[in-house]
Write a protein that binds this DNA or RNA. Structure first.
Lengths: 139, 139
DNA sequence: TATATACCCGACTAAAATAGTCAAGTATTC
DNA sequence: GAATACTTGACTATTTTAGTCGGGTATATA
């Protein structure tokens, strides 16, 4: 059970941005340097964030990215969704007509995994970008 | 964020076993057939479960595996630990003297991931094998 | 208007993890 | 002694992850 770097970096980068005045474009280059994340990788990540209406871009010199909404209104679940990061506890598709192992019924532990999935998603659903405590001690 | 098949199958197999009278050896072959899990794979899984004192083995004809404790006393967290399945939300090692990105401080979102890790582990810690509702409807 | 900055975006790749297979055993019961 | 079933380490194909790269386009500023 592991969180991938893409979502992790996405949250890190957005947290970084949220420390600056809103409407002030923050360049990926700066984020890259401050957070030690590859610039190329950040580009990939921000493409998704943009497509999902979490940030908007400002092109050209002094450009960068800007949070599209107040950090209070950005749920972590949105960020994860943007990066196709799903919490998957079962191999079997929930909405499939067939059961889990090619059998007719649900697998014996199906309900447990569903429960776990809901439990974890709940965490992300209730956490906002603004909830991260960004003290000066942490960069 | 994905659960691997090894832990999932482990819980499935143990749930399967817990439906039978305790002290009645259940063979991997039977579990394999009922739950559609490869016998070879189950062997690998049960090796770990045995090493971690969750099941004990009975060799020979009519042998199999037996739960070493009452399902009420088997926490899911134990099963996961047995299979080296850890909940990992950060790349950086917690106990390392260095910070997360080779920097001196913790990464900006470190506390968040710690919190998530604790949150998820909490789920497994509080869930017992006996908590799985094994109705006849599910196999 | 030239130039540097910074976003845009698809294609590519190395490395690691996962999922599963296999073989050659040993112990036990019937 | 034959069949059943656990024992254990080694091996492998596939998938996923993490990250790189190249060749763009848009815009501000000097």
């Amino acid at each position: 059970m592991k969180l991938n770097t893409k979502s992790r970096y996405a949250v890190m980068a957005l947290a970084d941005m949220s420390k600056f005045p809103i409407n002030n474009p923050v360049s990926l280059r700066d984020i890259s340097l401050r957070q030690s994340i590859s610039l190329f990788y950040l580009e990939q990540i921000f493409l998704k964030l943009k497509q999902n209406d979490i940030v908007k871009s400002v092109r050209g010199t002094n450009g960068g990215y800007v949070l599209k909404r107040d950090p209070k209104n950005i749920k972590l679940s949105e960020i994860f969704q943007a990066l196709d990061q799903k919490v998957k506890t079962v191999g079997c598709k929930k909405d499939s007509k067939k059961g889990c192992n090619g059998k007719s019924a649900k697998c014996i532990t199906h309900e447990l995994w569903d429960e776990l999935e809901i439990y974890i998603n709940n965490f992300f659903e209730n956490k906002k970008l603004s909830d991260l405590s960004l003290t000066r001690g942490n960069n």
